[in-house]
């Protein structure tokens, strides 16, 4: 009996050390799902469930589900935009493109309402980042102008397509490119409609689901940020 227990303990330590290596290495792959499961067990599932139950259109992630990886993009007038911008504040991360006529402008418009309302209530206001998944047509200067139209404080991100793809892949954001049928040398981009809520330690805390509405977003963001602050 004692031998079995020792072996089991040893195996447990081995597995957990492997998981730690995955975590500190900042690499994300299939291990993610296993990681998330392991962490979820440790998580106080009752508190988690009760917090989730208070949310209207948001999906919570367990504590150590995923962290935003290092990235190197551009913002403003060709200034660097890296993961360090996310430190010590809450952020809402949205991926889209400026040739998007419906979902993107509407989402940014709703986020403007969210930021206004949270500000007027003296609540914590997350910073809003809109990163293009179509950097060929959306150079950084264009992104800066585009987001400022919705709110001066919004941050527009662009950069190298490979760098953006690496980031979206690691975050589980979908971007797929479809040529228009009319042979016009034009294309559209299907992309994830939800936004990610990132906490001040760069942890991906929640997925804000579409359709995005000011009232729902304000309520859910306040609930989550108040709970974790």
């Amino acid at each position: 009996m004692a031998i079995i227990a020792t072996v089991a303990l040893g195996a447990g330590i081995y597995v957990s050390s492997q998981l730690n290596i995955e975590n500190t290495g900042g690499r994300y792959n299939e291990q993610d799902a296993i990681n998330a499961n392991a962490q979820q067990e440790q998580f106080d599932s009752q508190a988690f469930q009760s917090l989730q139950a208070q949310l209207q259109n948001t999906t919570l992630f367990p504590d150590s589900f995923k962290q935003v990886p290092a990235f190197s993009l551009l913002q403003g007038e060709n200034e660097p935009l890296t993961e360090s911008i996310l430190k010590d504040k809450w952020s809402v991360l949205f991926f889209g493109f400026t040739n998007c006529p419906d979902v993107c402008p509407i989402t940014l418009n709703e986020m403007n309402g969210v930021v206004d309302q949270l500000g007027s209530e003296n609540a914590t206001v997350p910073q809003v980042l809109f990163i293009t998944v179509d950097p060929v047509r959306d150079p950084v200067e264009k992104m800066a102008e585009y987001v400022a139209y919705f709110n001066d404080s919004f941050i527009g991100g662009s950069g190298d397509l490979n760098e953006i793809t690496a980031l979206t892949t690691k975050l589980g954001i979908v971007a797929s490119y479809t040529a228009n049928e009319d042979g016009s040398n034009d294309y559209t981009v299907d992309h994830t409609a939800s936004m990610l809520l990132i906490d001040p330690q760069l942890r991906v805390r929640a997925k804000l689901n579409a359709p995005h509405k000011v009232d729902t977003l304000v309520a859910d963001l306040k609930t989550i940020m108040t709970y974790y602050n």
Binding site: G96, C100, P101, D102, V103, V174, S176, N180, E181, S184, T188, D190, H191, T192, A193, S194, N209, A210, P211
Partner: peptide, 19 residues
């Protein structure tokens, strides 16, 4: 220059457009 009728929809959390 170009006007079309589109349907935008969100399917499995992915925003799409269909002519």
């Amino acid at each position: 220059a170009k006007v079309e009728i589109h349907l935008s929809l969100v399917e499995n959390d992915v925003a799409k457009m269909q002519k």
